[in-house]
Amino acid sequence: MMARAVVFAYHNVGVRCLEVLLAHGVEISLVVTHEDNPNEAIWFDSVAQLASLHDIPVIKPTDPNTDDVLHQIKAAQPDWLFSFYYRHMLKAPLLTVAPRGAYNMHGSLLPKYRGRVPVNWAIIHGEIETGATLHVMNEKPDNGAIIDQQSVPILPNDTAQQVFEKVTTAAELTLYRCLPALLAGTAQRFPQDLSQGGYFGGRKAEDGRIDWAQPAIVIHNLVRAVAPPYPGAHTCIAGQPARILRTLVVSQHLVTTAMPTLYMQDNKLFANCGDGSILRIVELELAGTPLDAAGFMQRFGHTPQTLA
């Protein structure tokens, strides 16, 4: 008998995992996704377009936990319910519709980094690996039993987008590997040790403000965690708003400096951080305009500029 599923999905993880279900012959009776936010940079692929390509019905409710949506899910008669980077929490009435269970793909190695934007948080905390985890879905986010997971490395200069691309592949591999056993009813479940991780909330653009009193490595991790297509790490230079978009840690040794400053040396831009460690500024915008070392020299000469 063919397995039938309702899929809640968005973003690249949603697209790739939906492709995996289709490749395994799962009948998708309904896809639930989001309307794209016009105020958000849409740099990822469209679940709705993929569903349309395969003639799968699509709904885009602002709230999935309504009686109307619940009625539509029940009418779709799913054996399974899957959530792949869908942004809303699903409440108990939805989670109990599918008799063979509800499962979520999360972008971390659970139990670490439960909650929102796990890739960004992992980079901010200097992690050297992350991954994707398929787990049983219940009302409390990201704490159900693990079905399978796949790790990927976080290299020292990886940006959030680069890591997210790896996590997308990890999600695809995880689902592809465990789906046959899941559909056959033979997949193992491994309870999480929740003491080994914690919950993290969403992030706002203002959370990307740089604290120059921090060491260079901490600032570097923030910069790459919020680099475009995310809003970018921001600061003030010469009284004007600036975004630091790419950096390299060149020294963690202390140098004598009265305060954090931006300066040019050997035709490169550097920042002395609050503890005296040094950060190379590879990509910078000042008042919305790119500023390289030559532009810095033309504008400020050899005078170091205070960072605030």
Rank of each mutant, 00 (worst) to 15 (best):
A3C: 09
A3T: 11
F8T: 10
V13G: 08
G14S: 02
C17K: 03
V20C: 03
L22I: 09
L22D: 09
V26Y: 01
I28T: 09
S29K: 04
D36N: 15
D36R: 13
N39A: 14
E40H: 11
A41K: 07
V47S: 04
V47M: 01
D55E: 14
K60Q: 10
D63M: 09
N65L: 02
L70I: 12
Q72C: 05
W80H: 10
S83L: 08
F84D: 08
L90T: 04
K91G: 11
A92L: 12
A92R: 13
V97G: 02
A98W: 00
R100V: 03
H106Q: 05
S108K: 04
L109K: 00
P111W: 01
R116K: 14
V117R: 06
V119W: 00
N120M: 11
I123V: 11
I124K: 10
H125M: 12
G126L: 02
G126E: 03
I128R: 13
G131R: 00
H135N: 09
V136F: 00
K140D: 09
D142A: 07
I146F: 02
Q149G: 08
Q150I: 13
L155K: 15
T159L: 08
Q162R: 06
Q162M: 09
V163M: 04
F164L: 15
F164R: 09
V167W: 00
R177L: 10
A187N: 07
Q192G: 06
F200G: 14
F200H: 15
R203T: 15
K204A: 15
E206T: 14
R209I: 12
I210K: 07
A213G: 13
P215K: 03
P215H: 01
A216T: 06
I217N: 10
V218W: 00
I219C: 08
H220W: 00
R224A: 10
V226G: 08
A227D: 06
P231Y: 04
A233D: 04
I237C: 06
A238W: 01
R243P: 05
I244G: 02
S251R: 05
S251E: 01
Q252A: 12
H253A: 15
V255N: 12
A258E: 12
M259I: 12
M264R: 15
M264N: 10
D266K: 13
S277C: 10
L279D: 01
E285Q: 14
G288T: 02
T289D: 12
P290G: 09
A293K: 07
A294W: 01
F296L: 03
M297E: 15
R299K: 14
H302F: 13
T303F: 03
T303Y: 01
P304F: 06
A308M: 15
